[in-house]
Write a protein that binds this DNA or RNA. Structure first.
Lengths: 126, 126
DNA sequence: CTTGCCTTTCACGTCGACGTCAACTTTTAC
DNA sequence: GTAAAAGTTGACGTCGACGTGAAAGGCAAG
């Protein structure tokens, strides 16, 4: 398929697809006239890339990690890298959960302040 | 206290503190010569700001929300806003947890691929 | 052949949260 | 009194993941 169809099927713009290729996240066959042609599994690959972006990884990290996932070439180094990213992600999640809880308490305080007309208590913990 | 001490006590740079003021997230008294002077509770306020940034909010959203948290002026509108941000955050957390699990399975696949010498299986679900 | 959509590369624009000089004034320490 | 340290405003730089034309060539339909 050509770039337009891949874009429609994945929901990402053609600009993004060319950008991914520029960042070595994606490769494509070229027809004689220079047009990109993708195989079916490109769709899955895009999905993988999008998930890794969603995980907070940058294009550089993704470029280093995808060969492992795609080709199964898991060097110990890459495994360490993956584990490191996983830990990173874990901490981000914990942070966000903490923040959500704080936000909840803020909401609680604000609600009761509205009910009672009394300013909500200030921040206490770290 | 002046800006340098506040910076040391909060761990954010003076540049960031001036930026926060520019974005109306923070106010300061001025001495005759124009230097900023902060009260003790500025430290807590910075922490609040940092948490909201960590929650993925932008300066604009924070500027709209902090008056509520600080002054207890919780209008129904602001409460709606807070609740909306909370839900947003909730979804982000769920996404990240999902991604982490996917990353775990990738790690699992890569490990076994290393052990068995067999390429890891391709992506299956959405 | 031409119309019209798709594709190509090039290259500057964007947005947000600051970093990083620069040029100066104020405060502090000796 | 003087030098170092810390403060001020102003303005341009950064980084990342694209957006957004521009100028040109490619491809099937009538």
């Amino acid at each position: 398929m050509r770039i337009g169809e891949l874009a429609r099927r994945t929901g990402v713009t053609t600009r993004a697809l060319r950008y991914y290729e520029e960042q070595n996240l994606l490769t494509a066959e070229r027809s004689g006239s220079g047009q990109r042609h993708y195989a079916e599994d490109a769709v899955d690959r895009i999905r993988l890339i999008r998930r890794l972006y969603a995980a907070g990884l940058g294009s550089k990290a993704i470029a280093e990690l995808t060969p492992c996932v795609i080709d199964g070439k898991a060097t110990p180094e890459l495994l360490r890298r993956l584990a490191a990213e996983r830990d990173h992600l874990d901490r981000r999640i914990a942070d966000l959960v903490h923040t959500r809880d704080r936000l909840d308490s803020v909401i609680g305080g604000a609600s009761s302040a509205m009910d009672t007309g009394v300013p909500c208590p200030r921040d206490a913990d770290a």
